[in-house]
Nucleic acid binder design. Structure first.
Lengths: 148, 148
DNA sequence: CCTAAATCCAACCTTAATGGTAGGTTTTCA
DNA sequence: TGAAAACCTACCATTAAGGTTGGATTTAGG
Protein backbone atom coordinates (compact mmCIF):
# COMPACT_ATOMS: atom_id res chain seq x y z
CA UNK A 1 0.00 0.00 0.00
CA UNK A 2 2.78 2.43 -0.81
CA UNK A 3 2.05 5.62 -2.61
CA UNK A 4 4.26 5.69 -5.71
CA UNK A 5 6.67 8.51 -6.36
CA UNK A 6 4.09 9.96 -8.72
CA UNK A 7 1.81 10.98 -5.90
CA UNK A 8 4.61 11.99 -3.57
CA UNK A 9 6.55 14.00 -6.13
CA UNK A 10 3.33 15.55 -7.34
CA UNK A 11 2.37 16.84 -3.90
CA UNK A 12 5.89 18.12 -3.30
CA UNK A 13 5.99 19.92 -6.62
CA UNK A 14 2.57 21.48 -6.12
CA UNK A 15 3.53 22.58 -2.62
CA UNK A 16 6.71 24.13 -4.01
CA UNK A 17 4.65 25.94 -6.59
CA UNK A 18 2.26 27.21 -3.94
CA UNK A 19 5.10 28.35 -1.70
CA UNK A 20 7.48 29.88 -4.21
CA UNK A 21 5.29 30.57 -7.19
CA UNK A 22 3.60 33.90 -7.64
CA UNK A 23 2.10 35.69 -10.59
CA UNK A 24 4.99 34.90 -12.91
CA UNK A 25 5.50 31.31 -14.04
CA UNK A 26 7.96 29.09 -12.20
CA UNK A 27 10.12 26.95 -14.51
CA UNK A 28 10.13 23.23 -13.87
CA UNK A 29 13.90 23.22 -13.59
CA UNK A 30 13.69 25.32 -10.44
CA UNK A 31 11.07 23.09 -8.83
CA UNK A 32 12.87 19.89 -9.77
CA UNK A 33 16.17 21.22 -8.49
CA UNK A 34 14.73 22.42 -5.18
CA UNK A 35 12.76 19.22 -4.58
CA UNK A 36 15.53 16.96 -5.86
CA UNK A 37 13.37 15.28 -8.47
CA UNK A 38 14.54 14.21 -11.96
CA UNK A 39 13.40 17.04 -14.21
CA UNK A 40 12.28 14.99 -17.25
CA UNK A 41 10.39 12.64 -14.95
CA UNK A 42 8.65 15.48 -13.15
CA UNK A 43 7.79 16.84 -16.57
CA UNK A 44 5.67 13.77 -17.25
CA UNK A 45 3.90 14.17 -13.94
CA UNK A 46 3.15 17.86 -14.28
CA UNK A 47 1.83 17.19 -17.76
CA UNK A 48 -0.88 15.05 -16.16
CA UNK A 49 -1.61 17.74 -13.59
CA UNK A 50 -1.96 20.26 -16.39
CA UNK A 51 -4.38 18.07 -18.34
CA UNK A 52 -6.41 17.70 -15.15
CA UNK A 53 -6.53 21.45 -14.74
CA UNK A 54 -4.47 21.75 -11.57
CA UNK A 55 -1.67 23.86 -13.08
CA UNK A 56 -1.37 26.21 -16.03
CA UNK A 57 1.68 26.40 -18.24
CA UNK A 58 3.39 29.25 -20.07
CA UNK A 59 5.53 28.16 -22.99
CA UNK A 60 8.70 29.69 -24.34
CA UNK A 61 11.54 31.54 -22.64
CA UNK A 62 10.66 32.93 -19.18
CA UNK A 63 7.86 30.38 -19.18
CA UNK A 64 6.98 27.81 -16.56
CA UNK A 65 4.05 26.72 -14.44
CA UNK A 66 1.42 28.40 -12.31
CA UNK A 67 -1.22 27.02 -9.97
CA UNK A 68 -4.54 26.97 -11.80
CA UNK A 69 -6.40 27.94 -8.62
CA UNK A 70 -5.75 29.57 -5.26
CA UNK A 71 -3.83 27.33 -2.83
CA UNK A 72 -6.88 27.03 -0.57
CA UNK A 73 -8.85 25.60 -3.49
CA UNK A 74 -6.41 22.79 -4.27
CA UNK A 75 -6.57 19.71 -2.07
CA UNK A 76 -3.88 17.09 -1.65
CA UNK A 77 -6.57 14.59 -2.65
CA UNK A 78 -7.08 16.16 -6.06
CA UNK A 79 -3.33 16.04 -6.72
CA UNK A 80 -2.92 12.44 -5.63
CA UNK A 81 -5.99 11.19 -7.47
CA UNK A 82 -4.86 12.98 -10.62
CA UNK A 83 -1.55 11.14 -10.58
CA UNK A 84 -2.43 7.83 -8.95
CA UNK A 85 -6.11 7.31 -9.61
CA UNK A 86 -8.54 6.27 -6.92
CA UNK A 87 -7.26 5.51 -3.44
CA UNK A 88 -9.42 2.39 -3.36
CA UNK A 89 -7.41 -0.57 -2.00
CA UNK A 90 -9.43 -2.88 -4.26
CA UNK A 91 -11.05 -2.33 -7.65
CA UNK A 92 -14.51 -3.20 -6.36
CA UNK A 93 -14.67 0.00 -4.28
CA UNK A 94 -13.46 2.62 -6.75
CA UNK A 95 -15.87 5.53 -6.26
CA UNK A 96 -16.87 6.48 -9.81
CA UNK A 97 -16.85 3.10 -11.50
CA UNK A 98 -16.26 0.10 -9.27
CA UNK A 99 -15.20 -3.14 -10.92
CA UNK A 100 -18.31 -5.26 -10.96
CA UNK A 101 -18.24 -8.33 -8.78
CA UNK A 102 -21.05 -10.83 -8.67
CA UNK A 103 -20.84 -11.01 -4.90
CA UNK A 104 -20.65 -7.27 -4.33
CA UNK A 105 -23.91 -7.03 -2.42
CA UNK A 106 -23.02 -9.71 0.08
CA UNK A 107 -19.22 -9.54 0.26
CA UNK A 108 -17.95 -8.95 3.76
CA UNK A 109 -14.41 -7.98 2.81
CA UNK A 110 -15.70 -5.40 0.35
CA UNK A 111 -17.06 -3.33 3.24
CA UNK A 112 -13.60 -3.22 4.76
CA UNK A 113 -11.94 -1.98 1.56
CA UNK A 114 -14.58 0.67 1.28
CA UNK A 115 -14.02 1.89 4.83
CA UNK A 116 -10.30 2.17 4.12
CA UNK A 117 -10.88 4.15 0.94
CA UNK A 118 -13.27 6.54 2.65
CA UNK A 119 -10.91 7.11 5.54
CA UNK A 120 -8.00 7.89 3.21
CA UNK A 121 -10.17 10.20 1.12
CA UNK A 122 -11.29 12.03 4.25
CA UNK A 123 -7.70 12.76 5.17
CA UNK A 124 -6.42 13.87 1.78
CA UNK A 125 -9.50 15.83 0.80
CA UNK A 126 -9.35 17.85 4.01
CA UNK A 127 -5.82 19.17 3.40
CA UNK A 128 -5.25 22.05 0.97
CA UNK A 129 -2.00 23.56 -0.26
CA UNK A 130 -2.85 26.59 1.89
CA UNK A 131 -2.94 24.35 4.97
CA UNK A 132 0.54 23.15 4.08
CA UNK A 133 1.80 26.70 3.65
CA UNK A 134 0.32 27.67 7.03
CA UNK A 135 1.97 24.69 8.68
CA UNK A 136 5.25 25.54 7.02
CA UNK A 137 5.12 29.12 8.27
CA UNK A 138 4.24 27.92 11.75
CA UNK A 139 7.21 25.56 11.75
CA UNK A 140 9.41 28.31 10.39
CA UNK A 141 8.41 30.59 13.25
CA UNK A 142 9.22 27.97 15.87
CA UNK A 143 12.65 26.84 14.72
CA UNK A 144 14.75 28.82 12.31
CA UNK A 145 16.16 25.58 10.95
CA UNK A 146 13.85 25.03 8.01
CA UNK A 147 14.02 23.70 4.50
CA UNK A 148 11.30 21.85 2.63
CA UNK B 1 -2.38 2.56 -3.42
CA UNK B 2 -3.87 -0.83 -4.19
CA UNK B 3 -3.72 -3.61 -1.69
CA UNK B 4 -2.10 -6.60 -3.41
CA UNK B 5 -3.82 -9.96 -3.59
CA UNK B 6 -1.67 -11.04 -0.67
CA UNK B 7 -3.58 -8.88 1.78
CA UNK B 8 -6.94 -9.47 0.15
CA UNK B 9 -6.58 -13.23 -0.16
CA UNK B 10 -5.18 -13.37 3.35
CA UNK B 11 -8.19 -11.62 4.87
CA UNK B 12 -10.57 -13.80 2.86
CA UNK B 13 -8.81 -16.98 3.91
CA UNK B 14 -8.71 -15.99 7.56
CA UNK B 15 -12.38 -15.07 7.47
CA UNK B 16 -13.16 -18.42 5.89
CA UNK B 17 -11.22 -20.11 8.64
CA UNK B 18 -13.06 -18.13 11.29
CA UNK B 19 -16.45 -18.89 9.75
CA UNK B 20 -16.05 -22.56 8.82
CA UNK B 21 -13.21 -23.68 11.01
CA UNK B 22 -13.81 -25.24 14.37
CA UNK B 23 -11.77 -27.41 16.66
CA UNK B 24 -10.59 -29.70 13.90
CA UNK B 25 -8.15 -28.39 11.31
CA UNK B 26 -9.46 -27.09 8.00
CA UNK B 27 -7.40 -28.20 4.99
CA UNK B 28 -6.11 -25.46 2.71
CA UNK B 29 -7.71 -27.14 -0.28
CA UNK B 30 -11.16 -26.46 1.16
CA UNK B 31 -10.43 -22.80 1.84
CA UNK B 32 -8.78 -22.23 -1.53
CA UNK B 33 -11.66 -23.92 -3.32
CA UNK B 34 -14.36 -21.98 -1.47
CA UNK B 35 -12.59 -18.64 -1.89
CA UNK B 36 -11.50 -19.35 -5.46
CA UNK B 37 -7.82 -18.82 -4.77
CA UNK B 38 -4.97 -20.83 -6.32
CA UNK B 39 -4.09 -23.40 -3.68
CA UNK B 40 -0.28 -23.40 -4.05
CA UNK B 41 -0.29 -19.61 -4.00
CA UNK B 42 -2.45 -19.45 -0.88
CA UNK B 43 -0.05 -21.95 0.65
CA UNK B 44 2.72 -19.37 0.44
CA UNK B 45 0.55 -16.76 2.06
CA UNK B 46 -0.66 -18.92 4.91
CA UNK B 47 2.91 -19.96 5.58
CA UNK B 48 3.64 -16.32 6.41
CA UNK B 49 0.56 -16.10 8.61
CA UNK B 50 1.71 -19.20 10.46
CA UNK B 51 5.21 -17.82 11.04
CA UNK B 52 3.59 -14.66 12.40
CA UNK B 53 1.49 -16.72 14.80
CA UNK B 54 -1.92 -16.01 13.33
CA UNK B 55 -2.74 -19.61 12.40
CA UNK B 56 -1.62 -23.01 13.63
CA UNK B 57 -1.07 -25.95 11.34
CA UNK B 58 -1.60 -29.68 11.76
CA UNK B 59 0.47 -31.82 9.45
CA UNK B 60 -0.35 -35.15 7.92
CA UNK B 61 -3.62 -36.67 6.77
CA UNK B 62 -6.72 -35.00 8.26
CA UNK B 63 -4.46 -32.05 8.92
CA UNK B 64 -5.00 -28.43 8.02
CA UNK B 65 -5.11 -25.03 9.63
CA UNK B 66 -6.67 -23.50 12.73
CA UNK B 67 -6.89 -19.94 13.95
CA UNK B 68 -4.21 -19.39 16.56
CA UNK B 69 -6.54 -17.18 18.64
CA UNK B 70 -10.24 -16.52 19.09
CA UNK B 71 -11.80 -14.57 16.21
CA UNK B 72 -12.34 -11.54 18.44
CA UNK B 73 -8.61 -11.46 19.12
CA UNK B 74 -7.53 -11.33 15.49
CA UNK B 75 -7.75 -7.99 13.72
CA UNK B 76 -7.80 -7.39 10.01
CA UNK B 77 -4.83 -5.12 10.62
CA UNK B 78 -2.67 -7.91 11.98
CA UNK B 79 -3.46 -10.06 8.93
CA UNK B 80 -2.76 -7.32 6.40
CA UNK B 81 0.42 -6.15 8.09
CA UNK B 82 1.67 -9.72 8.29
CA UNK B 83 1.32 -10.15 4.53
CA UNK B 84 1.92 -6.66 3.22
CA UNK B 85 4.04 -4.95 5.81
CA UNK B 86 3.26 -1.49 7.15
CA UNK B 87 0.39 0.47 5.66
CA UNK B 88 2.62 3.55 5.52
CA UNK B 89 2.21 5.29 2.15
CA UNK B 90 5.88 6.36 2.36
CA UNK B 91 8.90 4.73 3.97
CA UNK B 92 9.56 7.72 6.22
CA UNK B 93 6.41 7.03 8.27
CA UNK B 94 6.68 3.28 8.87
CA UNK B 95 5.75 2.89 12.54
CA UNK B 96 8.49 0.62 13.93
CA UNK B 97 11.47 1.73 11.89
CA UNK B 98 10.93 4.70 9.62
CA UNK B 99 13.42 5.25 6.81
CA UNK B 100 15.60 8.07 8.03
CA UNK B 101 15.33 11.29 6.13
CA UNK B 102 17.47 14.28 6.88
CA UNK B 103 14.49 16.59 6.60
CA UNK B 104 12.15 14.47 8.71
CA UNK B 105 11.70 17.05 11.45
CA UNK B 106 10.69 19.83 9.09
CA UNK B 107 9.08 18.01 6.18
CA UNK B 108 5.53 19.15 5.53
CA UNK B 109 4.53 16.26 3.27
CA UNK B 110 5.71 13.75 5.87
CA UNK B 111 2.92 14.85 8.18
CA UNK B 112 0.39 14.02 5.49
CA UNK B 113 1.73 10.52 4.90
CA UNK B 114 1.62 9.93 8.62
CA UNK B 115 -2.00 11.04 8.90
CA UNK B 116 -2.89 8.65 6.09
CA UNK B 117 -1.11 5.75 7.75
CA UNK B 118 -2.76 6.42 11.10
CA UNK B 119 -6.19 6.66 9.57
CA UNK B 120 -5.76 3.37 7.72
CA UNK B 121 -4.43 1.68 10.83
CA UNK B 122 -7.39 2.95 12.82
CA UNK B 123 -9.79 1.31 10.41
CA UNK B 124 -8.08 -2.06 10.06
CA UNK B 125 -7.12 -2.41 13.70
CA UNK B 126 -10.70 -1.81 14.81
CA UNK B 127 -12.13 -4.72 12.79
CA UNK B 128 -11.79 -8.28 14.09
CA UNK B 129 -12.71 -11.55 12.45
CA UNK B 130 -15.56 -11.76 14.96
CA UNK B 131 -16.92 -8.45 13.65
CA UNK B 132 -16.90 -9.92 10.17
CA UNK B 133 -18.72 -13.04 11.36
CA UNK B 134 -21.33 -10.90 13.10
CA UNK B 135 -21.83 -8.83 9.97
CA UNK B 136 -22.11 -11.97 7.90
CA UNK B 137 -24.77 -13.42 10.18
CA UNK B 138 -26.66 -10.14 10.13
CA UNK B 139 -26.59 -10.09 6.33
CA UNK B 140 -27.64 -13.71 6.28
CA UNK B 141 -30.63 -12.95 8.45
CA UNK B 142 -31.80 -10.12 6.18
CA UNK B 143 -31.57 -11.76 2.80
CA UNK B 144 -31.37 -15.48 2.33
CA UNK B 145 -29.22 -14.91 -0.76
CA UNK B 146 -25.78 -15.21 0.76
CA UNK B 147 -22.40 -16.56 -0.20
CA UNK B 148 -19.01 -15.16 0.81
C1' DC C 1 15.61 38.06 -36.60
C1' DC C 2 18.11 34.91 -33.75
C1' DT C 3 19.03 32.43 -29.88
C1' DA C 4 18.47 30.50 -25.57
C1' DA C 5 15.13 28.95 -22.39
C1' DA C 6 11.46 26.84 -21.72
C1' DT C 7 7.26 23.57 -22.52
C1' DC C 8 5.68 19.61 -25.01
C1' DC C 9 5.78 14.88 -26.77
C1' DA C 10 6.83 9.95 -27.87
C1' DA C 11 9.63 6.25 -27.44
C1' DC C 12 12.63 3.42 -25.00
C1' DC C 13 14.77 0.96 -21.03
C1' DT C 14 16.07 -1.38 -16.61
C1' DT C 15 14.63 -3.26 -12.38
C1' DA C 16 11.59 -5.15 -9.03
C1' DA C 17 7.24 -6.84 -7.62
C1' DT C 18 3.13 -9.49 -8.55
C1' DG C 19 0.81 -13.56 -8.97
C1' DG C 20 1.43 -17.31 -9.81
C1' DT C 21 3.54 -22.85 -11.30
C1' DA C 22 6.18 -26.95 -10.73
C1' DG C 23 8.10 -30.46 -8.32
C1' DG C 24 9.34 -32.30 -4.82
C1' DT C 25 9.98 -33.86 0.79
C1' DT C 26 8.05 -34.84 5.16
C1' DT C 27 4.49 -35.91 8.40
C1' DT C 28 0.59 -38.49 10.12
C1' DC C 29 -4.08 -40.47 10.31
C1' DA C 30 -7.03 -44.55 8.98
C1' DT D 1 1.19 -48.72 4.15
C1' DG D 2 -1.01 -45.54 1.41
C1' DA D 3 -3.14 -41.31 0.80
C1' DA D 4 -3.78 -36.72 2.40
C1' DA D 5 -2.09 -33.16 4.01
C1' DA D 6 1.59 -29.45 5.28
C1' DC D 7 6.07 -27.79 4.01
C1' DC D 8 9.80 -26.00 1.03
C1' DT D 9 12.52 -24.18 -2.91
C1' DA D 10 13.00 -22.79 -7.30
C1' DC D 11 11.35 -20.95 -11.33
C1' DC D 12 8.65 -17.92 -14.56
C1' DA D 13 5.68 -14.58 -17.24
C1' DT D 14 3.67 -10.20 -16.97
C1' DT D 15 3.24 -5.68 -15.39
C1' DA D 16 4.34 -1.31 -13.24
C1' DA D 17 7.72 1.87 -11.44
C1' DG D 18 10.88 5.15 -12.23
C1' DG D 19 13.14 6.81 -14.94
C1' DT D 20 16.24 8.34 -19.68
C1' DT D 21 16.74 9.94 -24.47
C1' DG D 22 16.02 12.74 -28.21
C1' DG D 23 13.81 15.58 -30.29
C1' DA D 24 9.93 19.37 -31.86
C1' DT D 25 7.71 23.61 -30.73
C1' DT D 26 7.00 28.08 -28.59
C1' DT D 27 8.46 32.65 -27.15
C1' DA D 28 10.82 36.57 -24.46
C1' DG D 29 14.79 39.38 -24.95
C1' DG D 30 18.85 41.14 -27.22
Amino acid sequence: MKLSTKGRYGVKAMFDLALHGGDSPLPLKTIAGRQEISEPYLEQLISVLRKDGLVKSVRGAQGGYLLAHEPDQITVGSIIRSLEGSMAPADCVIEDDPADCSKADCCITRGIWEKIRISIDNVIDSITLQDMIDEYNELRKQNKNYHI
